[in-house]
Design a protein around this nucleic acid. Structure first.
Lengths: 186, 186
DNA sequence: CTGAGAATTTGATTTTTATCAAGGTAGGGT
DNA sequence: ACCCTACCTTGATAAAAATCAAATTCTCAG
């Protein structure tokens, strides 16, 4: 059952807590381009991607800049907005037809009040996401345009298939032209 | 009292939980250059900087690359190592004489087992650090060398005073020479 | 106070990447 | 199938930053 995939690899959660959490989940069958969050609005949901993929992006100076890609088995939300309850600068959209589960901010807080297990699971997930972000940041400090692309190919090959050159280029901090040249010389 | 500064701005913690936590803290008076963590070793402590400052860096290809600066009132540890219990790639050292408090990994976990309050506080701190890291990452995507320097000056002016040009340059992802030229043209 | 070594600045040159400008290609809608 | 529009590639040039190489300034141990 897919919903329980959320808990894979995560330490012992009581059946009670698990069922409470699952009870709050809403299933969403999203087409390609479905907006999970919109810039300017407060992010009200934490999403889990059961199938599919998504990207988060900013619009600035009329440019669309991708800041992250999320794949199956990952959680995604506009973190800053979700946590601070202030309007989001970022928009999140699916890259393909996707199956999502979402829980609202209020219900998530309710879960934390009721079940320490769930707060712990969330804390551990947050830790993992934190160190993933740290690694991404550090790796980008050490690498050239070509190396960044090769690393992406190795670590998240699925993105190369799903996302457009423009999305990948802005994510890797280079122009579309540079990415195109990098790809042609592999 | 300085120790309680740790809890500033953080939601309700019971006296009991607070006292348990404080009971585990060790005070450390560190000279400039004191190593909080060493590359190659497992990070065993979460540090709180009561006074002073620190920097985290990696050595790669014989180059010393600063990945973050931490100031008074902030927590710092080699997150990846602390969380995964595997050897750290990063070293953390004080930039000046500093007053630190530290809690061991084991005792922190003990606190979480005993007091849900503390796990919540930790979770909220982690959220704040996560979004700070996200912001840092996003901002670096939009800015030139000069703009990155100006932003650092504005947001963390203390670092400009305390850290060397080499530390600042690698943190801002530019060479020492580029930083020197940027500074001369302000 | 002094000198050696380290850190920083300045200058010349090269490399990398962005920008500007055409062309080419692929896929969806009629 | 065919056009239209988006997207992608390629080429020429410009800009930004890195690298290499001195020269200068700072620091602190003796």
């Amino acid at each position: 059952m897919i919903k329980t995939g959320l808990f894979e690899n995560i330490a012992e959660v009581s059946d009670e807590a698990r069922n409470a959490f699952i009870g709050y989940l809403e299933e969403i069958e999203a087409e390609k381009g479905y907006k999970l969050e919109n810039a300017g609005e407060v992010s009200n949901y934490l999403f889990y991607i059961a199938q599919g993929s998504a990207r988060s992006f900013y619009i600035r100076d009329n440019r669309d800049i991708t800041v992250s890609f999320s794949l199956e088995g990952e959680f995604v939300t506009a973190m800053h907005s979700f946590i601070t309850r202030s309007p989001s600068y970022e928009t999140i959209e699916t890259l393909e037809k996707s199956l999502l589960y979402r829980i609202s901010y209020e219900n998530l807080q309710r879960c934390f009040q009721e079940f320490q297990d769930l707060e712990r699971v969330y804390r551990i997930i947050l830790e993992k996401y934190y160190i993933a972000l740290e690694e991404q940041m550090i790796f980008s400090k050490f690498k050239s345009a070509k190396e960044r692309y090769l690393e992406l190919m190795e670590k998240k090959p699925k993105i190369i298939q799903r996302a457009s050159v423009g999305h990948i280029a802005s994510f890797l901090d280079m122009t579309i032209e540079t990415l195109s040249r990098v790809r042609s010389k592999i």
